[in-house]
């Protein structure tokens, strides 16, 4: 259980916004281990979105190192990052980010297409992922024919379909009512129980409470890092 998945050293990210230099991350150090369930919290402007993009390999740091599953991601180019995202990371977004004109099944298939998986295997894996989140009867529905909770489940299925090292959720309940939020949290709980590493960015304390470890950011630095007693 001490298998390191994420190793971050002195992670720094600066943006040039017009004349102003915004220092979103000012040297973050942390390690996350296999099968952890981590919530990253912090007020807006604390740099949690930037950290999340960094961990998700959507962005590269100005300075510092980021090792994901033994790969040094911080020095990778665009296409290498895309491959890492494809294999190692499953995203769940606040706004679901599903393709509106594609069926649930096709949305879930998407990562497999870019992984080069052939048609039939793709459909098998995708429908398997959908049944894992309890949506095997909604395979052919389009996002606009699904409720918010169902959409987020499709997004979770999409995130899981490639069996990623980490499930990365950015405010996964931000657009959902509290009942549905609880449902989604139950799904996360189950996935975690099955061995999935989960990192969740949120500003809601009651959602963060579901996690087993809470990292709080403030002004681009780690402010606190507390583990819940199991």
């Amino acid at each position: 259980m001490t298998d390191t998945i994420i190793e971050v050293r002195n992670l720094t990210r600066e943006y040039q916004m017009g004349a102003e230099l915004v220092r979103a991350l000012r040297g973050v150090d942390m390690s996350i281990y296999r099968n952890e369930y981590v919530a990253i919290m912090g007020p807006s402007g604390s740099g949690k979105s930037t950290l999340m993009n960094m961990i998700g390999c959507l962005d590269t740091p100005t300075e510092g190192e980021y090792w994901l599953n033994g790969l040094e991601v911080s020095t990778m180019g665009d296409d290498a990052l895309a491959r890492v995202r494809n294999r190692e990371i499953g995203f769940v977004f606040q706004t679901f980010n599903l393709l509106p004109r594609a069926s649930a099944l096709h949305n879930v298939e998407l990562p497999l297409i870019y992984a080069g998986v052939s048609g039939r295997t793709r459909r098998e894996h995708a429908s398997g992922a959908l049944s894992r989140v309890g949506l095997s009867d909604r395979v052919d529905h389009r996002p606009n024919e699904l409720s918010g909770g169902q959409r987020q489940r499709v997004a979770i299925a999409r995130a899981l379909v490639n069996e990623p090292s980490i499930l990365l959720a950015d405010e996964p309940t931000g657009n959902l009512d509290s009942t549905t939020s609880e449902e989604i949290m139950t799904v996360f709980e189950e996935l975690h129980a099955q061995g999935q590493t989960i990192i969740m960015v949120t500003h809601e304390a009651d959602i963060a409470a579901h996690a087993h470890r809470v990292i709080t950011l403030r002004d681009g630095r780690v402010h606190s890092d507390t583990k819940k007693a199991a």
């Binding site: 296409d79 895309a82 294999r87 990562p111 992984a115």
Partner: peptide, 15 residues
């Protein structure tokens, strides 16, 4: 946005 989604799940530039 569609392009962004595709890239986030692993589409490379050439894809």
């Amino acid at each position: 946005r569609e392009i962004g989604i595709r890239k986030s799940v692993g589409a490379q530039q050439r894809d």
